[in-house]
């Protein structure tokens, strides 16, 4: 059992505030992804959980035990590093067995565990090789196997797939998810790649400027972003925003159209995902600027009331540059944000 609790964690590097008010509970055996742009503090948070960095304030609990004063080795964790950190002077076998040797496990136990995890990661043929003789993907597998061989309560991964090429990354993504699900460990996975986050996570924590903006399931983060930052960060292309002015009685004026919305008296931002727009008889008037046929669908970039607006439409439609489309937002998919706080409004 390894539930992770992060309580009021803050980290300062000199005058730079890298993390503030981090409160997060990760369930036992949950796959949690920390997602954010570079510099948002996600790696710092991971390193604080690992014990490679000390928090300026706050507490870290793993499995009901406070660990922030403990060295990494006593926290029941294993880690996969961004550049793999596969020791160049040791063979694949000794790399995978490194942690087990440090625990002074008997030789046959080391051998058993190394061979089992190497089999799991399909690198049993490489046990005698050095890292200089391996490809990037193979090194990645060694790094994961080394972490799994520890049979840890928690496995921490710092952008483990970012150095692989696109095809390999997709392959490893699925494989890693499967292997981790079977190993029954709690996993924290840092990435800036939203596709990786969406496809692998049980829950995603979206981080921005040293804070967790939203922690929820991938579909929740996608459908109901808690803040404009999340709406603009998740989804490719991201959500569209338009200014909306109140027209009374829960009605709103958006680009000259009257739409239903929350009962408020201050201006809001109207938001809709590009794929939640349909050509219709009434709706937002959109001037088509660029048409990108992507095979499965059509990505149309237009201008609505002078603002940039994207729609993902059926690929059977004939749309040309300069056309004016009437796009109707699917009512249950419309979201509203307060421009003052940038937070979602129900």
């Amino acid at each position: 059992m390894a539930e992770i609790q992060i309580k009021n964690v803050a980290k300062r590097f000199g005058s730079y505030q890298a993390l503030r008010d981090i409160n997060l509970t990760i369930q036992d055996q949950e796959f949690m992804v920390l997602l954010g742009a570079s510099g948002c503090g996600k790696t710092t948070l991971l390193r604080i959980i690992a014990g490679l960095e000390t928090a300026t304030e706050g507490e870290v609990w793993i499995g009901g035990r406070r660990v922030d004063h403990l060295p990494p080795k006593d926290r029941g964790i294993a880690m996969v590093f961004q550049n793999y950190a596969v020791f160049p002077h040791l063979t694949v076998f000794e790399n995978i067995g490194f942690g087990l040797r440090m625990q002074k496990l008997p030789n046959d136990e080391v051998k058993r565990r190394v061979e089992r995890t190497a089999g799991l990661m399909h690198i049993d043929q490489l046990l005698g090789r050095y890292s200089g003789e391996l490809s990037g993907g193979q090194r990645q597998r060694v790094a994961v196997a080394r972490a799994l061989a520890m049979e840890p309560d928690v496995i921490l991964m710092d952008e483990p797939l970012s150095n692989l090429d696109a095809l390999l990354r997709m392959e490893m993504r699925a494989e890693l998810k499967g292997v981790l699900a079977e190993s029954n460990t709690t996993a924290i996975y840092v990435t800036h790649d939203q596709v990786e986050a969406m496809s692998m996570a049980d829950r995603i924590s979206v981080m921005h400027q040293g804070k967790i903006v939203q922690a929820a399931s991938p579909i929740e983060v996608y459908r109901n972003p808690a803040a404009e930052f999340v709406a603009g960060f998740i989804g490719n292309p991201p959500m569209n925003f338009l200014p909306a002015t109140p027209a009374g009685d829960g009605k709103w004026t958006v680009a000259g159209q009257i739409l239903d919305g929350p009962s408020r008296t201050t201006p809001l931002h109207f938001a809709i995902r590009p794929e939640d727009l349909r050509p219709a008889d009434t709706g937002l008037a959109a001037m088509v600027k660029v048409v990108e046929p992507l095979g499965a669908h059509l990505l149309v970039t237009c201008s609505v009331d002078g603002a940039l607006f994207r729609a993902v439409l059926d690929s059977d439609l004939t749309v040309r540059r300069g056309d004016t489309l009437t796009l109707a937002p699917q009512p249950d998919r419309v979201r509203w944000f307060d421009p003052e706080t940038t937070l979602a409004v129900a």
Binding site: A50, G51, L52, P71, P72, K73, I77, A78, M79, F81, Q82, N83, A85, F87, P88, H89, L90, F98, G99, M102, Q103, R146, M150
Partner: peptide, 29 residues
């Protein structure tokens, strides 16, 4: 010697002395 090797060794349970004998010395050959 990249810092990441020391961090990996630390996470996987190597004491400062072990990090010196198992990482620094061999990589310093």
């Amino acid at each position: 010697i990249p810092k990441e090797y020391y961090e990996a060794a630390e996470v996987f349970g190597a004491s400062p002395w072990k990090r010196f004998t198992r990482i620094t010395l061999p990589l310093l050959r």
